Amino acid sequence: MDVFMKGLSKAKEGVVAAAEKTKQGVAEAAGKTKEGVLYVGSKTKEGVVHGVATVAEKTKEQVTNVGGAVVTGVTAVAQKTVEGAGSIAAATGFVKKDQLGKNEEGAPQEGILEDMPVDPDNEAYEMPSEEGYQDYEPEA
């Protein structure tokens, strides 16, 4: 019985440690998101679009440190934060509304985080759909 109880105690310690790591990862992701939003706020009209992409990228980098179902929630929060940063930029006159959601080359930025393969159960990952990809044929 002692062996059984000791095993359960060790398992509990492992769960607590994993929860603490997840909590730490979420806190880091939130900190990076805040950094990115402050970065966007300090940019001029020309830099705002690039700044919004930076927020998304920093958040995406930190999301990889967070495991399990938390990833889905962090990704949703990050996307809403990026959308909010863009709205703030438009409201303050840093950028025109028609410039939001495009990178410096004018290509749409939507789907940055949505296409990231995420499995809350950590069982399997699927690649994003290939609808947006084109076949590449090298020139002879």
Rank of each mutant, 00 (worst) to 15 (best):
G68Y: 02
T54A: 04
Q62N: 08
Q109A: 02
G41A: 12
K60V: 07
H50W: 10
P108W: 07
A19Y: 13
G51N: 04
E139A: 07
D135L: 08
E105P: 02
S42A: 12
K97R: 11
A27F: 11
K43V: 14
G106F: 06
V3P: 00
P138I: 09
A107D: 09
V16Q: 06
S129Q: 08
G51P: 02
F4G: 00
T64Y: 10
M1F: 00
T44F: 12
K32I: 08
E123T: 09
V40T: 02
K12A: 05
G93L: 09
E28I: 06
G67R: 10
V63T: 03
M116I: 07
A90K: 05
V16Y: 15
K97A: 05
K45D: 00
V55L: 14
G7S: 13
K12C: 08
V37H: 00
G36S: 15
L113A: 13
Q109D: 08
K43P: 00
G25Q: 13
Q79D: 03
V15G: 01
S87E: 11
T64P: 02
Y125L: 11
D115G: 09
G7T: 11
Q134K: 13
N103A: 04
E83P: 02
V37R: 00
V15N: 00
A78E: 01
K23V: 05
P120V: 05
L8R: 00
A29T: 07
D121V: 06
L38I: 03
G31R: 13
D115T: 09
Q134S: 05
K12L: 08
A78C: 06
K6V: 02
L38N: 04
K6C: 02
V26M: 14
A85P: 05
D135W: 05
K32V: 07
G14D: 02
V37M: 09
T54C: 15
E131S: 08
H50F: 14
S42I: 14
E105H: 01
Q62C: 11
A56M: 12
S129V: 11
E61S: 08
T92Q: 03
A124F: 13
Q79L: 14
D2I: 01
K32P: 00
V15H: 00
K10C: 01
K32E: 01
V77R: 02
K12Q: 07
E35Q: 03
G25R: 13
Q62E: 03
P138Q: 05
A90D: 09
T92R: 04
A69E: 02
Y39P: 00
H50T: 14
V118G: 11
G36V: 08
S9C: 13
S129C: 06
M1N: 00
V82K: 11
K60D: 00
T92V: 12
G25T: 15
G84N: 10
A30Y: 13
D119R: 11
G84E: 05
M127R: 05
E20G: 02
E35P: 02
Q62I: 11
V63L: 10
N103C: 12
E83A: 09
N103L: 06
V26T: 01
T64V: 08
G47Y: 15
V63F: 15
M5D: 00
K10T: 04
E57Y: 09
V95F: 15
A90I: 03
T92S: 07
A30C: 07
E20W: 10
E46R: 09
D2Y: 14
G93N: 03
L38K: 11
A56Q: 06
P128M: 13
K58S: 05
Y39F: 11
T54V: 07
A29I: 15
A11Q: 00
E114I: 06
I88V: 03
V49D: 01
E130K: 10
E123F: 07
K96Y: 12
K43N: 04
Y133A: 08
E61N: 12
A30F: 15
A30V: 07
E110P: 08
G101P: 08
A29M: 12
G14H: 13
E57F: 09
D115A: 13
P117H: 10
V3G: 02
V71W: 14
G41L: 02
E137M: 05
T59W: 08
K23C: 08
T33Y: 10
D119N: 05
K97D: 04
T72P: 04
D121N: 07
D121R: 07
A19R: 04
E104F: 14
A78M: 12
K60Q: 03
E130H: 11
E28V: 11
P108H: 14
S129I: 06
K45V: 04
E110M: 06
G36C: 08
D115V: 12
T72C: 08
P138V: 09
T54P: 01
A30D: 00
T44K: 01
A91K: 03
G25F: 14
G25S: 15
K43H: 08
T33G: 03
H50Y: 06
A91S: 04
V15Y: 02
A107R: 06
K80D: 01
P128Q: 07
A85N: 07
Y133Q: 15
V71Y: 09
A18K: 04
G132Q: 11
T81N: 01
A27L: 12
S42R: 15
K21T: 10
T64D: 05
P120R: 11
P120A: 11
V77Q: 02
T72K: 09
K23M: 06
L113T: 13
E123Q: 10
P128K: 06
G73S: 09
E28F: 05
E35Y: 13
E114R: 11
A30E: 00
A85E: 01
G93Y: 02
F94K: 06
G84F: 14
S87Q: 15
E130R: 10
E123A: 04
Q24V: 15
G36E: 06
V49Y: 14
G93T: 10
V71I: 08
V37A: 14
M116Y: 12
A140Q: 04
P117S: 05
G68H: 11
E105G: 07
V63M: 12
A140S: 15
G132R: 12
D2G: 01
M127N: 08
M127F: 05
L100T: 06
S129P: 09
V15E: 00
E83V: 13
D135K: 03
G86R: 08
V48Y: 11
T33I: 05
G36T: 15
V82F: 06
F94Q: 13
E46T: 15
L8G: 00
E61L: 10
A91R: 04
E35S: 08
V48E: 00
A76F: 10
G132C: 10
N65F: 04
I88L: 05
E130M: 09
G67D: 01
E123V: 08
G73Q: 13
E57S: 09
M116R: 03
K80M: 03
V118F: 13
V95N: 11
V48T: 03
G36N: 14
P108E: 12
T72G: 15
V49C: 11
K80Y: 15
G111K: 10
E46I: 06
E28Y: 13
E131A: 14
A56K: 12
Y136M: 13
E139I: 06
E126G: 13
A140L: 09
Q79F: 09
E137D: 04
V37K: 00
Y39D: 02
S42C: 09
A89D: 02
T75H: 08
E139W: 05
A107N: 13
A90Y: 05
E105Q: 11
A89S: 05
G47V: 13
K21E: 01
D121L: 08
A30T: 07
V3L: 09
E20V: 08
K10F: 14
